[in-house]
């Protein structure tokens, strides 16, 4: 038996988990040191799909991408928002130092248009980042997008609902985002290339509403009356 194992071990075709090779996939730093560490020092993969699984807006999911957006728009790359669920608010983006000339928002009609648009954006050399809210996607469609993203070298982040967590996906990086107790963002790495998934971390996101200086959240007691609503 051990002889058989030894033969298998010597065979180069068997991958061994402890021999962890550093992958050299092109990538962009997330801008959050803590998250970069969890992702093996890489960050957002370029030329591959990333998925953020998130249920509600307003938990810091856009702030997760802000450092990348700032960097890309500063270097003249274009950031596309494809079918965002709400309006990206221009004054807030400008305040964060994003060059709005490089930001394009696209609203498409049906699913066919969506995939076509996303593919075109991904294949173009001018694109730095595409943030897309696809709604329902078949695995085949994700596969198609993955191929398109491989032909370019830009970051593509799909925002999907958390119920797709268990669904298999060809995306290179999958992050599950949930809100923490202190306005922070809890990140669970479901899948990543080159190593084991399962890392968890929590990023402080209180600064997104200028709350960093407040220790206790109960500073202003709102004039909320527990009456009719």
């Amino acid at each position: 038996m051990s002889e058989l194992l030894n033969t298998l071990m010597q065979d180069a075709r068997v991958w061994q988990g402890h021999r962890h090779n550093k992958t050299t996939t092109p990538s962009e730093s997330t801008g959050y040191q803590l998250l970069d560490n969890q992702l093996g020092g890489i960050g957002w993969p370029r030329g591959a799909l990333s998925e953020c699984l998130v249920d509600q807006p307003g938990i810091g999911e856009i702030h997760l991408l802000l450092p990348l957006m700032q960097r890309l728009t500063g270097t003249g790359k274009t950031v596309f928002w494809l079918n965002p669920p709400h309006t990206p608010y221009a004054p807030a983006l400008a305040r964060e130092g994003i060059n709005l000339d490089q930001v394009v928002m696209i609203q498409t009609g049906d699913g066919g248009d969506f995939l076509w648009t996303l593919e075109n954006c991904l294949r173009s050399p001018v694109t730095g980042l595409v943030m897309a809210w696809p709604g329902k996607l078949a695995t085949r469609d994700i596969r198609r997008l993955q191929l398109a993203s491989e032909s370019g070298s830009n970051v593509c982040v799909l925002f999907r609902e958390r119920r797709y967590t268990d669904q298999n996906s060809p995306a290179a990086l999958r992050l599950e985002l949930t809100p923490g107790d202190h306005q922070d963002l809890k990140i669970n790495v479901i899948k990543r290339r080159g190593s084991w998934p399962g890392q968890r971390c929590s990023l402080a996101m209180a600064h997104r509403a200028d709350l960093a200086f407040r220790e206790t959240p109960q500073v202003v007691q709102g004039p909320w009356h527990q009456s009719r609503r």
Partner: peptide, 10 residues
Amino acid sequence: LPRRPLWLLQ
């Protein structure tokens, strides 16, 4: 510019 949210509802 004052502090504003990144999402504005329709």
